[in-house]
Computed example of a mutant assay.
Amino acid sequence: MLTMSTVNPFAQRESHPAQAVWTYKILTALSWLLLVVTTFYYSFNAPGDDVKGWRHTIWAVNRLHHTPFAQNQIITSLYWLALFISQIGYVWSLFSSNADYVNAAAGVGSHFIISNLFNFAFVMLFVRGHYNWAEVILVCNFFNLSSLYFRHNTHPRFIHIPVVSGPLAWTFVALYWNGAIAVNAHTLAARIVANIFIWGILVYGLFFLVAYKDYTMGFSLSILAASIGVGQFLTHAIALQWIFAFVIMAVLFIATLLIAVPGIFGKEFSFRREGAVVPADQERAPLLDDH
C-alpha cells in the first residue's frame, strides 16, 4: 500500500530504490546544466525578445537599477562560479560506488532540483524586467532551501555547501537585491530603510553560527556582504551602506573563524556559559558527518 512517505519526494529516507536514484541522476544533472547554461548566457547576453527596452543582461540590470543592495559583479560572479564547480562534486556523488554517498546525495536531490528550477525561473524573469514575479520565485526558493536546511543539516560538507548553505545564503541576500529593484529603491527614504535592513544579513548569519555552528553560512554571507560593500563604495562612496556592509562582512568573518578554526584542531568553540546544562540532542553540529 502506498503511503504519504513513499510518494513524497521530500520525505527523509534511509535508502533509495535503484529506480529513484537513476531518476535523481538524470533530473539533477539536467536541472544543473539548465541553470548553469542560462546563468552564463544571460550574464553576457540580453534576451532577444526586447520590445520595450526592459530586457538586459543580469549585470546590466544591476548597473541600471543601482539600489542600496546592488552588488559587485566580479565578487558575486566568482561566488556563483565556485558554487557551480562545487555542485559538480555533488552531482558526481550520485554516481559514486559508495552507497552512503549515493543515499546522502539522493536525500537532498528533490530540493536541489526544485532550487535549480526556481533559480532558472528567477533569471528568466529578472533579465526581462519582471522583478515582482522574480521576488515571488525567490521567496518560494527561500522556503524550499530553508526546509532543506532544517531537515537535512547533518550532511557532509561536500553536500551541505553546494546544495544547502551556499544557495540558501545567496537566496537570502537576493531577496534584498531584487526586492530593492522591484520597489525602485532610489530615494533618500529608501536608502535609510536599506541602512536598517542590511543588518538582517548579520542577524541571519549569526543565527546559524550560534545555533548550528555552521561556519559555511557565515563565510558565504560574509562574501556576499563584501560584494554589496564593494558595489556600493564604487558608486556611492559618500554613504553609510558600504560602511555597514563591510562591518557586517568583518563581524561574520571573525565569528566564522571562531567557529571554524577550533574545529580544525579538534576543539569546539561554544557560545554557552560554562557549566550550562544542554540536552544531548542539541549538541549536534550541522557538519558532523564529514567523510
Rank of each mutant, 00 (worst) to 15 (best):
G263Q: 13
Y176Q: 06
A285N: 14
A70S: 15
P68R: 05
G89P: 08
P17A: 13
T187A: 10
N119H: 07
P156N: 11
P47V: 03
G166C: 06
V251N: 03
T6Y: 13
S165W: 00
F158Y: 15
A46H: 09
A60E: 15
S31N: 11
Y101G: 01
N103L: 04
L125F: 03
T39P: 02
I223Y: 02
A11V: 13
L27E: 04
A99Q: 13
L288F: 11
P156L: 01
G129Q: 09
V173T: 09
S31H: 10
I248R: 02
I192R: 03
I58A: 02
S31A: 14
H56P: 00
D289G: 07
I88P: 02
L188S: 08
A169P: 10
T3C: 12
N144C: 04
T256W: 01
Y41P: 05
F246Y: 13
V251G: 06
F271P: 06
I254L: 10
L224D: 06
A194F: 06
L145P: 09
N98E: 13
W32K: 06
A29R: 08
A180T: 15
R63M: 07
H66N: 12
V183I: 09
I254C: 04
F246L: 10
F265W: 12
C140P: 03
G275L: 07
A211C: 01
D100S: 11
